[in-house]
Design a binder for these strands. Sequence first.
DNA 1: CAAACCATCCTGTAAAAACAGGAGATTTCC
DNA 2: GGAAATCTCCTGTTTTTACAGGATGGTTTG
Lengths: 207, 207
Amino acid sequence: MAVKLFITDDHYMIVEGIRSLLQFEKDIEWLGHAMTAASCMAFLQQQQPDVILMDINLPDKSGIDLCKEVKAKYPAIHIIGLSSFNQQSFIQKMMDNGASGYVLKNATREELKEAIETVIGGNNFLSPEAVTTILKNEDSKIPVITRREKEVLLLIAEGLTNHEIGEKLFISTTTVDTHRKNLMAKFEVKNTASLIRMAAQFEFIKW
Amino acid sequence: MAVKLFITDDHYMIVEGIRSLLQFEKDIEWLGHAMTAASCMAFLQQQQPDVILMDINLPDKSGIDLCKEVKAKYPAIHIIGLSSFNQQSFIQKMMDNGASGYVLKNATREELKEAIETVIGGNNFLSPEAVTTILKNEDSKIPVITRREKEVLLLIAEGLTNHEIGEKLFISTTTVDTHRKNLMAKFEVKNTASLIRMAAQFEFIKW
DNA sequence: CAAACCATCCTGTAAAAACAGGAGATTTCC
DNA sequence: GGAAATCTCCTGTTTTTACAGGATGGTTTG
């Protein structure tokens, strides 16, 4: 029996590319595609695929959040994250939210087929590059920061001094400094510049 | 006569997607594709297409830099930037470096055809979304920084102090400080934290 | 309930960055 | 050739961070 496949990606060319790559596969039945998280959920009310290839960046919400929702409602569906970013933070979040696999957009036909077969078999699949990323950054984990620390971090990134942040949050300058100190310890850096760089890299800062 | 088309993109699915979208167009002759900037340049020594669809993120160098090189060597080639990012900074840099157009990866077949025809006709083409972005962010310009300033900027982001940077680049600490000062002036910020944030936003810093 | 964690605050010192206001030398571009 | 830009370096002063080493009260949780 053919694997029912669905794609959620707002990039028309990617959808076309995957369709083109898999069009002659008899074991794969193409159910269609959605360009937004909302239309993906709407489709699932009608039909349930076996596998969803899901982009990480969607116009209405992140694929990471959508992944969680889909798995909550339809636990039987296998989700494979799809992204051009070979970034550990994304991969980790996606897998944490119930994804069974993660494939990069420069994957070959064979890799794509292997990914689909693997997750159908109940196992997890990661692109070789993604595996490398995970292994490489095994030790350097993404720090867990508190709500207050994040608040302070964003204000630092905006260019406020400790004093200004203190006034804004109604706390003492020394408290802000302590938060900054703890942030630097958690990120394992020794000054603000690299703190902000790391925070941007790990996507604590968005724009 | 058919338009000779070449693609430089490291995302296999995108290449497949575009090929699939344009396969039945008689006016378009598919010359092939390159996955890296280096192999693109190598190909151009053999054959020159009329139009190159060029991704902004390539493994060996940015499409923005590659664009500049290609236009310097082969001014007759029309380059269309290709990206999933609808970001003004990218678009502007690409056009500054000689690109004739900019298309998003969620473009339809019609949009793609129109883009190719337009640039062949000697005119510029921008995806409708890209036009909106440009118009919206008209005022917030991306600073133009020098090679040396960029060098210093990256070292600042890595967490080095003025003194350490000076040692690394064999220049005085005060010179580094001057560069930092000028960078802050150009980015219109008043401290390092927001400098790094802005630099990350405008993608001067990569990872 | 005790251990962890969190947020708050403190003193003090050293280092670094921010700010002002130059100036000379070289390269680049018109 | 000359103007503009770039890179280099300087002397100061003030502000801000970085670093050390605490302490207190509150909340969460095994």
